[in-house]
Computed example of a mutant assay.
Amino acid sequence: MAQSYKQKQVVRYYMCDRTNKLTLSMLVNVLLEISGQQSALLNRGEDFVRAMGLSWIIIHYDFEISRLPKAEETVEIETIATEYNKLFTYRDFYVRDKNNEVIITVKTTFALMDLEKRKMARLPEIVIEPYQAEFSKRIRRNVKAQPVEKESASQKVFDVSYFDIDSNNHVNNSRYINWALESLDEAFLSNHTIKKGVISFEKEVKENETVTSYSNTYEEEELITTHHLSANGMTNCTATFVWDRNKKEG
């Protein structure tokens, strides 16, 4: 049976936006920290995989959010590595409030990158075994982001700087999330909250590159934004988010 790991987390003010809600990029950082803690307890931390010339990378996120926790709220985060195949492992996260209600569910797809070749590597059994995840030959078909119509899209340009680069020598995936969302205007971001979304990472962005963030906004049955990040003519990241309008307090 797959190993579950739980950890309490206090949402600090620096993790939140101007509405005092946890940001999506900070949520991702916290989730990855929790998964890293589980790996360390199983003696499969970053040092272990790096000794094999490998490092974990994220391929895909799928979010379901009933609400984002607020500053100084304490939540419990649970993570389970549920399944794997020769290339990918699938890890689920559940964020619960003080009433033990699940307020956020995140399903992720991880892979291992060969640090020298900068390509995905097969998953060694010695790395995966302690998590007790189920092996399956099938490769999941993740939900794809909707396409962006660049001709009508809002866009913003970002220069990749030294502090955007993580220990894998590429842009940290939380930066992609901020770049995608920052193509939306302040009024939209202040008055809306993400309730679900998907993010796919296609190609790594490197230092000194210039990233263009495109986004479209649609409102039919739901309010939707679609996002496309590109550098040097390549697709680096795609995303789609579904939004709720914030309720006025008081």
Rank of each mutant, 00 (worst) to 15 (best):
F93T: 01
Y94I: 02
Y94T: 06
R96A: 04
K98P: 02
N99E: 13
N99S: 15
E101Q: 14
V102K: 15
V102L: 05
I103Q: 00
I103R: 05
I103T: 10
I103Y: 02
I104V: 14
I104P: 01
T105G: 01
T105P: 02
T105C: 04
T105D: 00
K107Q: 08
T108N: 05
T109R: 01
F110C: 05
A111R: 10
A111D: 03
L112P: 06
L112S: 05
L112G: 05
M113E: 08
D114Y: 08
L115M: 15
L115W: 10
K117W: 05
M120R: 12
M120K: 13
A121Y: 03
R122M: 12
R122D: 03
L123I: 15
L123M: 15
L123S: 04
P124L: 11
P124Q: 05
P124G: 10
I128C: 07
E129F: 06
P130T: 12
P130K: 10
P130Y: 04
E134Q: 12
E134K: 15
S136G: 08
R138S: 13
I139W: 03
R141P: 01
R141V: 08
K144W: 02
K144S: 10
K144E: 05
K144H: 05
K144N: 09
K144L: 06
A145V: 02
Q146G: 07
P147C: 06
K150Q: 14
S152T: 12
S152V: 12
A153E: 05
Q155F: 09
Q155N: 14
K156F: 06
F158Q: 03
V160E: 03
Y162C: 11
Y162L: 15
Y162S: 13
F163W: 13
F163S: 15
D164E: 07
D164A: 10
D164G: 05
D166V: 12
D166G: 06
S167F: 11
N168R: 11
N168V: 09
N168S: 06
N168Q: 11
H170N: 09
V171N: 04
N172A: 14
N173T: 07
S174N: 11
R175T: 13
R175C: 11
I177Q: 00
N178A: 11
N178R: 14
N178L: 14
W179K: 08
W179S: 10
L181P: 04
E182Y: 12
L184M: 14
A187H: 14
S190G: 09
N191W: 04
H192D: 02
T193I: 14
T193W: 02
T193P: 02
K196Q: 08
K196F: 01
G197H: 01
G197F: 05
I199W: 00
I199F: 00
S200A: 00
S200D: 00
S200Y: 00
F201Y: 09
F201Q: 01
F201I: 00
E202K: 02
E202S: 10
K203N: 15
E204A: 14
E204G: 09
E204R: 03
E204N: 08
E204P: 11
